[in-house]
């Protein structure tokens, strides 16, 4: 059966690419330290020697739209183009081409549906920065086949937080039951406190540092019970209007398992939002 090489949870800051590649007067003062932290984070994936990446993220109203909105969707394609015109325009992101791992896509779809998770699928999916940011930060050579999984953290009615955890648990079980010798890294990106298009946006820190400190502790210790007890669809509005993206971190806690401490934790307090990076090596704890 396949091996889970690493479980990685991260924020996805679309400005990293521009900040890290800028030079001279255009280079922001926080860029060098940010690059140092990201490269250290990258090493945690490189060391795991993965063959395949499962990438969990959330389409930002690019291909998934309100006339036909899935809650959870698995890409099932041999190839994926990635990044969109408005991401080039706003963030300077490059366009990508990525190969899919369609056998694993099918295994997750078939197995998930059979276990009661009625997953949507897409045979032609253009990916966005929620899943390309971790390629830029963690695997810039973009040399591994992927299975993208999208969650709806954007368009109410959203699934409940516990459903994200359950999906994470199931993704882990399905990867571990995939009849393959390959090493799979499961990488998911979400948000800590975040405001977009509201009065608290683009402050010197994330809009709710107190929430961020608690959330980092929950993730670092995979304290699912506590997170479920303290987080609801209503409460996630309080730290900022885009904080429902924290549910993708809860999904990754479901992958890591209740109470399993992350082997690597780092954060970086930036304008606009706090960056947070977590890696678990399940082989050592199995």
């Amino acid at each position: 059966m396949a091996t889970i090489a690493a479980v990685i949870a991260s924020t996805h800051h679309p400005f990293y690419y521009k900040a890290s590649t800028s030079t001279g007067a255009d280079r922001p003062p926080f860029a060098d330290e940010w690059v140092r932290k990201v490269e250290a984070f990258r090493d945690t994936l490189t060391r795991a020697n993965p063959d395949v990446l499962v990438l969990v993220g959330s389409d930002h109203f690019h291909q998934l739209w309100l006339d036909n909105m899935p809650q959870f969707l698995v890409g099932n394609a041999p190839h994926y183009d990635a990044n969109w015109y408005n991401e080039e325009r706003e963030f300077g992101l490059p366009r990508f081409f990525m190969n899919g791992q369609q056998e694993l896509s099918w295994h997750i779809l078939r197995g998930g549906i059979d276990r009661g998770f009625d997953l949507a699928f897409s045979n032609e999916l253009r990916l966005d920065h929620s899943v390309t940011c971790p390629i830029i930060t963690l695997r810039p050579q973009n040399d591994l086949p992927v299975v993208p999984i999208y969650t709806n953290i954007f368009a109410p009615p959203l699934p409940q937080p516990k459903r994200f955890v359950e999906l994470g648990r199931m993704i882990r079980e399905l990867v571990e039951s995939w009849p393959s010798d390959l090493r799979v890294a499961i990488i998911g990106t979400g948000h800590l406190s975040l405001e977009l298009g509201g009065p608290r946006q683009f402050g010197p820190h994330g809009p709710d540092p107190e929430f961020d400190a608690k959330a980092v502790e929950w993730i670092a210790t995979s304290d699912i019970e506590r997170a479920i007890a303290e987080v609801s669809l209503d409460s996630l509005w309080m730290p900022g209007n885009a904080t429902h993206g924290f549910m993708d971190f809860m999904l990754m806690m479901g992958v890591a398992g209740e109470g399993v401490k992350a082997d690597y934790v780092d954060t970086y307090d930036l304008f606009h939002t706090m960056e947070a990076y977590f890696t678990w090596y399940l082989e050592a704890t199995a």
Binding site: P28, H60, F61, N86, R89, E90, F154, A155, L196, G197, G198, Q201, F202, N241, A242, F271
Partner: peptide, 24 residues
Amino acid sequence: HPFLTLTLFIAMYERDFAEPLGFQ
């Protein structure tokens, strides 16, 4: 939807501000 509004208005107005994040 605040994300849609923000994204489109950045596209239209960010260019008119000299400072980074001035429009935001």
